[in-house]
Design a binder for these strands. Structure first.
Length: 501
RNA sequence: CGGGCUGUAGCUCAGCUUGGUAGAGCGCUGCGUUCGGGACGCAGAGGUCGAAGGUUCAAAUCCUUUCAGCCCGACCA
């Protein structure tokens, strides 16, 4: 009789981090690889987390005046050609549709019908700036039509050569916001407001601390004048770009003729922005909070806040235990957390207790409550917090119910505080290239390095050798005179450098 | 697109060197024993061995071709 392993997930983070990541996804039943290379199936538990993210973000977008709409999956190939940098950024990873009919290939299979070739190939959207821009060009005539504040929830396809579930897949789900403004200032303000919104969401809903910053030229979105991003640090000390907000200037407006007549009667090009977050956030959520027993979910995103596990030996006990659990569930559900009833799952499947418990541990449910005949007799429950681990506490039933919202908030806060601490411990200021190379040596743990720098090819070359990237220039960083560690030139601000996903 | 590797049960894989009735573990189904903890026993279902061609009395095994996938590199707003 083999003893169960000490941890639910094998290997552990320290043994093999990438493999641990895969196993957490599997253990939590979030997703699996599909029959299509590079594309994944998001399973109900994983999709429920995404739905919770969507709901919250959607409310935030609406509250700031944005409206949802939907644009086509297909984009005429010629649209992509209009913005030079944009082409360069995406052309290499586009799925292309060339035919509209299949015929028998004469060998018992199918092939595209040569007589059904499209006059102009369509590409599957890798992002929608071009087709939305073309649409906006029709919508905008007058300064009175502005601003236009649109968001769409959609799937996009980028034909990636190397994929990792949630972090980089050929198809992924996201939201893309697209706005049009009369002035550069207004568009820049929008870009910044969305960055703040994303940071708010990451920190207060996902409990994932982020750095808000501006991208260097090399990391900018193709076609953007300015790219802002939120950057999070994962438990392996690598950075993850968790959301981007782009000030597109007049680049797309000019490429696509988005023009309007101003108050003074002149015909001028509009200013546009775009911004997005994707299912990649689930990967970030996982790598921020999960441990060697699997996923750990912040209560605000958990599909279930509490799972109740009945424990009984026979059918006689079963009836009593289930009844007690049902009433406990109802009581908990009458409590509110985060503006909605507490989400409770009663797992009465006919499975062994141990196996059942570990399934929920691996799925990351914030609170587990086990109820057996002994607890019923004493008016107690066996109460376990996922973020703490260890043995259950036997608590008074009434107290648990009364405190449930407060407990959930405590868990949410604990996860955030823990993540901040981990990040801060891995953060350093570095003032010389020598120190920098040591910090990012192959066998060093790495982390986030704040350094003076001057953007340019010399820096890019040195970074590439170390497999390090400039993550961003923090927007709340204080101006401070210094010397670029790569070139020695004068610098006014520090940037954040890290290895990244 | 270079370099390496793998295709056998739902999953992970053994068998191939030396050709001779298709295997294991997990999972699944049933029955029983267990049960405050990731159980155990017994019985069972499940595979044209990636595909095509060749050698042979005989091919999962040898040869040729082909398809698919994985890893390393290159690439990756």
């Amino acid at each position: 009789m083999a003893k169960p392993p000490k941890n639910a997930i094998s290997p552990t983070r320290s043994e093999d981090y990438p493999e641990w990541y895969q196993q957490v996804i599997k253990g939590a039943d979030l997703a699996e690889n599909s029959d299509v290379r590079g594309c994944m199936v998001i399973k109900p538990w994983g999709y429920a987390i995404w739905e919770n993210m969507q709901r919250r973000l959607d409310d935030m977008f609406k509250a700031t005046g944005h409206e949802n709409a939907y644009f086509p999956l297909f984009i005429p190939m010629s649209f992509l050609e209009k913005e030079a940098e944009h082409v360069e950024g995406f052309a290499k990873e586009c799925a292309v549709v060339t035919h509209h009919r299949l015929v028998d290939n004469g060998q018992g299979g199918l092939m595209p019908d040569p007589s059904a070739k499209l006059e102009e190939p369509l590409i599957v959207r890798p992002t929608s700036e071009t087709i939305i821009g073309a649409t906006f060009a029709r919508w905008v005539q007058s300064y009175r039509d502005l601003p236009i504040l649109i968001n769409q929830w959609a799937n996009v396809v980028r034909w990636e050569l190397r994929t990792r579930m949630f972090l980089r897949t050929a198809e992924f789900l996201w939201q893309e916001g697209h706005t049009v403004h009369a002035t550069a200032e207004e568009a820049q303000a929008e870009t910044m407001a969305i960055l703040k919104l994303y940071a708010d969401f990451a920190e207060n809903t996902m409990a994932m601390p982020v750095i808000q910053g501006r991208k260097t030229a090399g990391e900018r979105f193709p076609g953007a004048v300015d790219t802002l991003s939120i950057e999070a640090m994962m438990q392996d000390r690598k950075a993850l770009q968790a959301g981007t907000s782009h000030f597109l200037g007049q680049n797309f407006a000019k490429a696509q003729e988005i023009k309007f007549q101003s108050e003074s009667g002149e015909l001028v090009h509009a200013w546009t922005t775009s911004w997005g977050v994707s299912t990649r956030l689930i990967g970030g959520l996982l790598m921020t909070h999960a441990d060697d027993d699997g996923l750990v979910l912040p209560p605000k995103l958990a599909p279930a806040h509490v799972v109740i596990l009945p424990i009984y030996k026979n059918d006689d006990q079963r009836g009593d235990v289930i009844a007690y659990c049902e009433s406990l569930k109802a009581e908990l559900e009458s409590e509110h957390y985060d503006g909605a009833p507490v989400r409770v799952k009663l797992d009465d499947r006919d499975l062994r207790g141990g196996e059942k418990k570990w399934q929920w541990v691996k799925r990351g449910v914030p609170i587990r409550i086990e109820v057996g005949p002994r607890d019923i007799a004493e008016g107690k429950v066996a109460f376990s917090r996922r973020d703490l681990g260890g043995k259950p506490e036997f608590l008074e039933r009434a107290g648990v119910v009364k405190e449930i919202a407060k407990t959930l908030e405590t868990i949410q806060q604990t996860l955030f505080d823990r993540a901040v601490k981990l990040r801060d411990e891995a953060t350093v200021e570095i003032n010389s290239l020598e120190e920098f190379e040591k910090f990012f040596a192959a066998d060093a743990p790495g982390g986030l390095a704040y350094c003076h720098f001057v953007d340019g090819p010399e820096m890019e070359a040195k970074l590439k050798k170390l497999k390090v990237t400039a993550r961003c220039i923090p927007i709340d960083g204080d101006a401070e005179s210094g010397e670029c560690i790569f070139t020695g030139a004068a610098s006014e601000r520090r940037g954040v450098f890290a290895r990244a996903y």
